[in-house]
């Protein structure tokens, strides 16, 4: 066992872990952060994407011991306020909701974490740049169309310009 100290979503943890423990398993099984999911288990699908010291990584392809001394942000740590239930969603979460950027929702945590990372680097991505930027995240439901719209709408809100009015997609409740 190896002792690690990690900050996850703003809280500090010190734990003994086996070196072979993957970061995603540490988050889910030790810390109960089950918002981060395991999709493919082969580094392809990106469902397990979290931020490690501010950069998007696939948490199935990082060892928990490698996160020692680091700051991890998961999908559970991006909304405003403690466990906010009240609509203070991160702009990227809000845009995925408004633009219906999901169907089954399994890829969504990773999509949102990868998209926040993309927009941090490129605040005004074109459609092509969004598609390239989330190439490490697979969605088997949507065909990506509304995901791309969501990322562009969130990017507009995050850089402070008026968000594009949501299209009437007929998909929202």
């Amino acid at each position: 066992m190896t002792q690690i100290s990690v900050r996850v979503d703003g809280a500090s943890y010190t734990d003994d872990v086996e070196p072979r423990t993957l970061l995603v398993h540490y988050l889910r099984e030790h810390l109960g952060k089950v918002g981060t999911v395991v999709g493919c288990d082969t580094s392809n699908c990106g469902a397990c994407t979290v931020h490690l010291d501010g950069e998007a990584v696939k948490s199935c392809t990082v060892l928990a011991v490698q996160a020692d001394g680091s700051e991890v942000t998961t999908i559970e740590g991006i909304s405003g306020g403690d466990g906010a239930q009240d609509g203070s969603l991160h702009p990227m979460q809000k845009a995925f909701h408004e633009m219906h950027g999901l169907q089954c929702g399994y890829c969504t945590p990773g999509m949102i974490m990868a998209s926040i990372d993309l927009v941090a680097d490129n605040p005004d991505p074109s459609e092509h740049e969004v598609r390239e930027g989330i190439e490490g995240n697979l969605c088997r439901c949507t065909g990506y169309q509304n995901i791309v719209r969501a990322v562009q709408q969130a990017a507009a809100e995050m850089r402070g310009s008026a968000p594009a009015a949501p299209d009437t997609l007929g998909a929202q409740a």
Binding site: L52, A56, G136
Partner: peptide
């Protein structure tokens, strides 16, 4: 090479 998550590591 690969995707942005992989390129970060």
């Amino acid at each position: 090479v690969a995707d942005r998550q992989v390129r970060h590591r």
